[in-house]
């Protein structure tokens, strides 16, 4: 076992707020240059660029965990990490089939295109759904759906002034089933329940942000299953910085 350094919150050019040069290929290259062993690709409410990201990472030194940053009905951001692209795609299907993020809702409203690319950074298309919107599903329902698919549910930037548990809900619900919480250090740690493991991630929207914050995990290999064990503190795995 050794420490693997991970940045588990990175947006690609598919996210409406991310820069266009956040292509999967560019992200993997930058992550490798920053010495990261593992990243999670987490676009807003879409799994659209995951296959390109995993394709780019194949055979390289940076492992990619398929993920998604889901916006709940309360406008709380939840990082959902999965073992497979299929599980992430199923999560997306549940959101879209439930009527969330309707197509053609005005994807240019936020100024940037939502670009879907392939492993060679070639444009495959533009996502017409308004990914900056919110799901009709509440926080607990989304966490339940992520867990049902074998995924990890992490409270994104949980202590931030916007789109966080603290900003939207005032405090952590007693029965919140998060597996971990991402902290930015913007508020005193005492506002956050002690029971949740703390993670540090960059929430990168531009290449220079990748790896700016990271978490060290003691584990056997940079895989989803090992990550899940480390977050839960099982089998000698754990969070080490």
């Amino acid at each position: 076992m050794r420490i693997y350094w991970a940045d588990l919150h990175i947006h690609t050019c598919l996210s409406p707020c991310a820069e266009l040069d956040m292509t999967p290929k560019g992200i993997i290259k930058r992550a490798a240059a920053k010495g990261l062993d593992m990243i999670a690709v987490t676009d807003h409410n879409s799994a659209g660029n995951l296959s390109a990201a995993l394709g780019c990472a194949a055979g390289g030194t940076v492992a990619v965990i398929p993920g998604m940053e889901i916006t709940s009905a309360e406008e709380v951001h939840i990082l959902a990490l999965f073992e497979t692209i299929d599980a992430a795609a199923e999560m997306q299907r549940q959101l879209y089939d439930g009527g969330d993020f309707p197509p053609d809702a005005g994807h240019k409203a936020f100024g940037t295109e939502q670009v879907i690319v392939n492993v060679a950074d070639e444009i495959l298309g533009f996502e017409p759904r308004l990914l900056a919107g919110a799901s009709s599903k509440g926080l607990e329902d989304i966490i339940g759906a992520v867990h049902a698919l074998g995924g990890l549910a992490i409270a994104s930037h949980s202590d931030r002034e916007s789109f966080s548990v603290l900003s939207q809900l005032g405090f952590f619900p007693e029965d919140a089933m998060f597996d971990a919480i991402e902290v930015t250090g913007k508020k005193p740690d005492t506002l956050l329940p002690a029971r949740f493991p703390r993670l540090h991630s960059s929430d990168a929207h531009s290449p220079d942000m990748i790896g700016r914050k990271k978490t060290g995990f003691m584990m056997e290999a940079p895989t989803f299953r090992e990550l899940a064990m480390a977050i839960k503190g099982e089998g000698g795995r754990g969070i080490r910085g």
Binding site: E75, L166, S167, Q168, L169, G170, F171
Partner: peptide
């Protein structure tokens, strides 16, 4: 208000 932190 819809932000509970604001209402708190």
């Amino acid at each position: 208000s819809d932000m509970l932190s604001d209402v708190l």
